[in-house]
Design a binder for these strands. Structure first.
Lengths: 371, 371
DNA sequence: TTGTATGCGTTATCAA
DNA sequence: TTGATAACGCATACAA
């Protein structure tokens, strides 16, 4: 435990500085002979450098903070994992915070992250107020916003193409001949939620359907909200399709349709958004706009590193394209799960059962859709 | 940025030590007058204490490491969240590591955690070898094992009653009059997986069914493995029920049954294990043994804190009971989702849509089951 | 090529 | 009640 660098030096018959040099490979050279002695001493004493002292000295912790509204939500969990993956590749470790959709708690986490001197911060803002923003900006840490954009231009934002994706999904439903397409959206005070509604409107308008005559239901992104929404919107047969703003909600929607005796896709077709792993396993499987989790993670890390190098790096948003994954819920043929991509078995990591997302030829546009 | 304690002291016309005393409320008193001046100076300069320096001095980081096989797996995500919750309540922050079911990576994370001087470590061992164990033990950090037990008696283990729960689930299927009950299990080299198989055997044996005549399928805990298992085991009608070792697998099983045209629960009843949130939203909803996530998290944190106070605290395992949540997949009435527990809306935190898990009167034993 | 000395920002001990 | 000062363990500029 209490073995310090000085102990190693003494045993190796040299000075602490030299121990540093061999450990860090610099900045100065060390005679191969001494180096060997030092390594032997390290081994013998089981010496482990104290990263805290190192951080203090270097003013760098090799740690990023990741603040998420709810880590147990599968979408955020997959996003967090992608970031962890990209950060790990750059030798950064993640301090994780669960805002639990609570502004006070979000602020509390920002404060501990700051106190712990994280080198940078990823923020997926909880909806509602985000009172930690001024504090963050003033602190001077590098940070990037994920999935949602924050008001102001303090930080870079990395997100999927919410609007374009929603439009594509809706267009796909239209291509299936559906016309009365409702929208089950996210919370009204969340930017990407509204962007998705806009995308849905875009598609309807272009197809000559009056969006104003279709209804939009706003609620949380969770399964339960989707369930309730479907029970309210779908019971009377007004709609022959519905665009759902998240896979989680769509899972609730499918369950509600089952309970109501409405068939999917025969009576009501469903298309949703996110591309979480679970979407491939519902019955029917969900047609969804898959977010590029890995790319989101990599982009976010890269942009944060850019800002570490140059605090004045630009804060433009990175908007990444989403992919239409056509499965059964929209009326496309529902692929048999899990036969195409390699052996089964243990966790086809990373990204879990990622191969499943491409189980239908991706039309990109609307090619191949039974009109 | 570079505002240090000394700056505050100077501005307040006092000494650095006094600044500490007012900040930490001790160990010595400070004259109210000076205190006011110090606080004003802190405010004015926007001073934020450096937690790294503090950690170095105190030899305490107020940080725990959490190492998980796969954070994007819903079960681990819910478990991680419970731990985060409990740790946050004790003012600890979590450094999170994703082993990605890879031993080398698990070891890499153990090392950074050690280097960063976490005060304690939660380990959910990946299956397969766990070569970091000696290193961990030798390091002297306090750590507890979660969900799975590690060989040896180095650390306390906190886990659910895998065997008893599996037994209860199987008994429930038996109480529904099923007799030909197969078992879809987890990986063969994972202790809890085998404990669940044993529980299933217990129940069959007691009911006079020869377990040896039923088959056990081993595979990963994921959806895909469940899907494959079901296609292999269920196609020929040998079974009228199946005990599935995880909800994730069961979700795959339901999908496979759909594809095979086998009705659940009519043809094959299903009961599974874990009680993840998603289990309430399948069709039919899954009857499952719900793990007490919150209690697991609290117990784990408490036991870790105990070991911080007293490194020689005992390392006995904490085995927590699991609850039978009867829903449609076993043949019980499938409850309508989400009407009972309060308003919907935004994230019924914490524990997400927790109210749903109790949507059927919990028999505890087998009471109320249509024999 | 190597040893010495200083500072990182904090807390705690010791005089005053 | 307060001000100075010595660690905590490391990295590096500087002297040797």
């Amino acid at each position: 435990m209490a073995v310090r660098r000085a102990d190693v030096a003494k045993l190796a018959g040299t000075s602490p500085a030299v121990v540093s040099y061999v450990l860090n490979g610099g900045p100065r050279g060390v005679a191969p002979e001494t180096k060997a002695r030092v390594l032997a001493a390290i081994e013998q004493l089981g010496y482990r450098p104290n990263g805290i002292a190192r951080s203090l000295r270097l003013n760098r912790t090799m740690t990023f903070g990741l603040l998420v509204p709810d880590t147990s939500n599968p979408f955020f969990a997959q996003l967090a994992r992608a970031i962890e993956e990209a950060a790990f590749a750059e030798n950064y470790t993640l301090l994780i915070g669960n805002a639990a959709e609570d502004d006070a708690r979000q602020t509390a986490y920002v404060r501990t992250f700051l106190a712990r001197r994280v080198d940078g911060l990823f923020l997926v803002p909880a909806h509602g107020p985000t009172s930690c923003l001024p504090e963050l900006q003033q602190s001077g840490v590098a940070w990037v916003t994920l999935d949602r954009q924050t008001p102001g231009r303090y930080a870079a934002a990395v997100m999927a193409d919410h609007r374009g994706g929603a439009r594509t999904a809706t267009e796909h439903l239209l291509a299936h001949g559906r016309r009365r397409i409702g929208c089950i959206a996210g919370p009204e005070d969340v930017v990407p939620a509204n962007a998705r509604v806009t995308g849905w409107r875009d598609a309807l308008a272009e197809a000559g359907v009056r969006p104003s005559e279709m209804s939009v239901w706003h609620g949380s992104f969770g399964r339960r909200a989707g369930y309730r929404a479907a029970r309210e919107m779908l019971a009377d047969g007004r709609f022959d399709a519905v665009f759902v703003a998240s896979d989680q909600q769509a899972i609730g929607v499918l369950r509600a349709m089952q309970d109501l005796g409405i068939r999917c896709p025969d009576d009501v077709a469903v298309a949703s958004f996110d591309g979480i792993a679970a979407a491939a396993y519902t019955s029917p499987a969900l047609t969804t706009m898959a977010q590029p989790f890995d790319e989101l993670g990599q982009t976010a890390v890269r942009r944060l590193l850019d800002r570490l190098d140059d605090p004045d790096a630009d804060t433009a948003s990175s908007v990444l394209p989403v992919d239409l994954v056509a499965r059964g819920s929209c009326g496309c043929p529902d692929p048999v799960v899990g036969d195409e991509s390699g052996a089964d078995g243990d966790a086809p990591a990373p990204g879990d059962e990622a191969g499943l997302h491409t189980d239908a030829p991706n039309p990109g546009d609307d090619a191949g859709v039974p009109a």
